[in-house]
């Protein structure tokens, strides 16, 4: 924590970073809105991907197209932004497989993730989504606390 000469805590707020975050959020919201207006579907990434695994096959084409759009968009992000994937590669590889398993299983069991619950559901005032968002944020914060400050691990 940074302190000034009088010992007061100084919080440095980067206005440009804050503006970028807000604008990025607005773009995400507008994209999700476009999916609702055009296709009538909720832009929940885990639900869209989970649906690709369904048997019998249900609405595969648009789901696959959405995922392809994310990946191609990622290539543009890589080309345009400065250090767009900062921190990737710092997580020990041995943790990435269990982390992915938990994220996939948890999102399917809980019917949504950061986009479906955190953005679309919270916007609609859905009690389920508000509870889910609070729970996964607390669980995420507790996990990071344990990893960084108790086990004092790799990061």
């Amino acid at each position: 924590m940074e302190r000034n000469l009088l010992g007061r805590v100084v919080v440095t707020v980067d206005v440009v970073e804050m503006g970028r975050a807000l604008l990025g959020g607005a773009v995400i919201g507008a994209s999700a809105l476009a999916l609702l207006a055009a296709n009538g579907r909720i832009a929940g990434v885990s639900g869209i991907v989970d649906g690709l695994l369904a048997r019998p096959r249900v609405e595969r084409a648009w789901r696959a197209a959405f995922v392809a759009g994310l990946v191609v968009g990622g290539a543009i992000v890589r080309a345009v932004f400065d250090d767009p994937f900062r921190g990737l590669g710092t997580t020990p590889p041995a943790l990435l497989a269990p982390a992915g398993l938990l994220v996939g299983f948890g999102a399917s069991l809980g019917s949504g993730c950061t986009s479906g619950h955190g953005v679309c559901g919270v916007s609609r005032g859905s009690p389920r989504s508000i509870v889910a968002t609070v729970v996964f944020m607390l669980a995420g914060a507790a996990t990071v606390y344990l990893a960084r400050h108790v086990l004092g691990g790799a990061r």
Partner: peptide
């Protein structure tokens, strides 16, 4: 329980489904 499990995985890697698929391009 699903949100809890999801949150633990999210906290381990700093990745959730949308950003993970986007970051495949990295």
């Amino acid at each position: 329980v699903g949100a809890l499990v999801f949150g633990v995985g999210w906290g381990l890697a700093g990745l959730c489904p949308g950003p993970a698929l986007t970051a495949l391009a990295s």
